[in-house]
Design a binder for these strands. Structure first.
Length: 623
DNA sequence: GGGAGTTGGTGA
DNA sequence: CACCAACTCCCG
């Protein structure tokens, strides 16, 4: 008789011991009786016969995590401080049931892919560079032709009998990349993201098994598919925050996990971006691919006014309308961040210790740093120009649509945001309507920035830029510049385009909009030594429906961390209420920690994690 | 996750 | 005291 420890996928249940007549390999899926019900679990260990009586494993399922998945499982459990139970569901979408996989009917053999794009001289250089370096960053301007390089790399990997993964953020929003890949790889491509129906998911899994699918284009969850011969991972738009699973547990980052796999296996990893994160730029060898194609002429217009329909904006929109062109108007919204701005020069106040924007607490009439809890009185006047400071006003997309409709009675205005674009169908419809010219002004949130092609747009507007720059997040500058560059890219794909930035910080944008390299160099001075890549961060979030209890747990947690100082090197940056104080009717507190390596932070996370304490290492969101 | 067992509030 | 909902315990 064999005895095994079984972890139950997705259940908040301890690892339990079962027996089996036959030997079962580690990380094989099984059904085991739990409270009399057959339940999906995985063998995680063999063990001695225990002192208590054990039940038999009911069924050994024809499903076993492969070598890559096993490494991922162990690494995520360790690094993101998550029990196996919580990590395992990543590998088998629960809506699929457990054993779809009938034996593959036929195994497809490798018919070579001959079709590949022609590469320019520069693209060829980049291609060679990526081949020489096992892991590398392709730092290529928009329109410099990164996709052709990816496709050439993928072609070679597939022709060597390997599988390839093409990761992108929010894939549900980029159907054009799919058709592009299909043009080269036909039936060998499958698209994978959370919105694919269970039926299609089962079909794709089957086709991965029988090797008819060799390339997966997908969102972060595609990283967990059973790819036994994975040879290449491309992470496109590597700077994008949606690679990090901030919303649910475990809080893994698919880009970082791809790099982990690259270091552990014979897998090539390419990260690509026109606006790489400083962290990646600092960590990896990069090839700098400059824009070669038609440099479309762009005019930047700086509208030094607070968020709203200013005279400059009215004028520019009128020009666009009378030229029978279209405009995209981006109004990035950030929930729950109140702050002060100077009425005259737009100055925002930053924490002297953390260099992130200070939040304004209206009731207490005080400015507070979200990171370190530093408080200061509301200044009576602006430190830069001496004018009055007032609370920066908020503007929502719906409100903006109303204002535009009132101002431009003949213009057709449409909204493009999370509320409106809920499905792929709606997205397609909205894009079609816009490209057919049925809409003149398209108002939206960050969603507008994602790589959609708009043909007749000659004006791109980004409002509320200064709020983004003043956001209490150490990456506020990086993210804002990246967003602004992307939105600007929507204007004037053909011919001339105008870009209006509603900002007082025109110096920053004049310097860096066309010099991201310069920005990265400058940003080092701002990040070193307080923030990544020069330091590591850990964020703990305490949430409880009882406020006193939440605050008690916070204090207990901080006390526990203080005790760990004896053995570990780290710094408590600060602790207190979260930016979003109540979420899902729970009161929220946070602790923010810094260390020079991940090790002490992982140790702290392990010591603190619990029912009411969520841990987030390498956080990208500070809500 | 979910069934069983426990607690605690409410109302006649 | 009967009833029910909310909470907590625990599964091998």
């Amino acid at each position: 008789m064999f005895y095994y420890k079984v972890a139950f996928s997705g259940l908040n249940v301890a690892i339990l011991t079962y027996q089996s007549e036959v030997k079962i390999s580690l990380f094989n899926a099984v059904l085991a009786p739990l409270k009399g019900k057959d339940t999906l679990g995985y063998i995680v260990n063999e063990c001695e016969k225990p002192s208590f009586k054990t039940l038999n494993v009911t069924k050994i399922l024809p499903l076993c995590l492969n070598k890559i998945q096993t490494e991922l499982l162990n690494f995520i459990a360790y690094y993101y401080t998550s029990p196996f139970n919580a990590v395992l569901p990543l590998f088998l979408p629960k809506e699929l049931g457990f054993y779809e996989s009938k034996n593959a009917s036929k195994i497809f053999t490798n018919k070579p892919f001959l079709n590949a794009p022609n590469l320019s001289q520069n693209q060829k250089k980049a291609f060679d560079f990526l081949n020489e370096n096992k892991t590398a960053l392709l730092f290529g301007d928009t329109g410099s032709g990164k996709s052709e390089i990816y496709i050439s790399m993928i072609k070679d990997a597939l022709n060597m009998g390997k599988q390839a993964l093409f990761l992108m953020p929010e894939i549900s929003l980029t159907p054009q990349m799919q058709s592009r890949l299909e043009r080269y790889f036909g039936e060998s491509v499958a698209v994978w993201h959370s919105k694919i129906t269970p039926k299609n998911k089962a079909e794709i899994l089957k086709n991965i098994k029988n090797k008819s699918v060799k390339l997966i284009a997908g969102a972060r969850s595609a990283l967990f598919l059973p790819l036994d011969d994975l040879g290449l991972i491309v992470v496109d738009e590597e700077h994008d925050d949606s690679y990090k699973n901030s919303a649910s547990k475990p809080h893994y980052n698919a880009r970082d996990l791809a790099l982990f796999l690259g270091a552990k296996f014979n897998i090539k990893v390419i990260l690509g971006s026109a606006t790489p994160s400083l962290t990646t730029f600092h960590k990896l060898q990069n090839f700098r691919l400059k824009g070669t194609f038609f440099k479309s002429e762009k005019t930047y217009i700086f509208d030094k006014s607070e968020v709203g329909l200013s005279q400059i904006l009215k004028d520019e929109i009128s020009k666009t309308l009378s030229a029978k062109k279209q405009a995209v108007i981006c109004l990035p919204t950030r929930a729950n961040f109140r702050h002060l701005a100077c009425v005259q020069c737009g100055e925002r106040i930053k924490c002297p210790f953390c260099s992130v924007g200070m939040s304004f607490y209206k009731k207490e009439q005080v400015l507070k740093c979200q990171y370190c809890e530093f408080k200061m009185a509301v200044p009576s006047s602006c430190g830069r120009c001496g004018s009055d400071m007032i609370e920066a006003k908020k503007l929502g997309t719906s409100e903006l649509v109303e204002i535009l409709e009132r101002e431009f009675a003949n213009a057709r205005v449409a909204k493009f945001d999370r509320d409106e674009i809920t499905t792929q169908n709606r997205l397609k419809k909205a894009l079609n309507a816009f490209n057919k010219g049925e809409i003149d002004l398209l108002v939206g949130t960050q969603m507008l920035s994602k790589g959609h092609d708009y043909h007749n747009v000659d004006l791109a507007v980004i409002m509320g830029v200064d709020e983004l720059l003043a956001y209490p997040d150490f990456r506020a500058r990086e993210r804002t510049l990246s967003l602004v560059k992307q939105v600007a890219g929507r204007a004037g794909r053909k011919g001339q385009g105008r870009v209006v930035l509603q900002t007082f910080e025109d110096d920053f944008f004049r310097r860096f909009l066309d010099d991201y390299d310069g920005f990265l160099a400058d940003e080092v001075g701002f990040r070193d030594p307080l923030y990544p890549p020069f330091a590591r961060l850990l964020r703990l979030v305490i949430s409880h429906k009882n406020e006193r209890e939440a605050s008690r747990i916070l204090n207990e947690c901080v006390a526990k961390i203080e005790h760990l100082r004896l053995d570990l090197e780290f710094e408590i940056i600060g602790y207190g209420k979260c930016g979003i104080e109540i979420l899902a009717s729970k009161y929220r507190y946070e602790v923010l920690l810094r260390a020079s390596s991940h090790k002490p932070l992982v140790a702290i996370a392990k010591a603190c994690v619990g029912e009411f304490i969520d841990v987030d290492i390498d956080p990208v969101a500070f809500l």
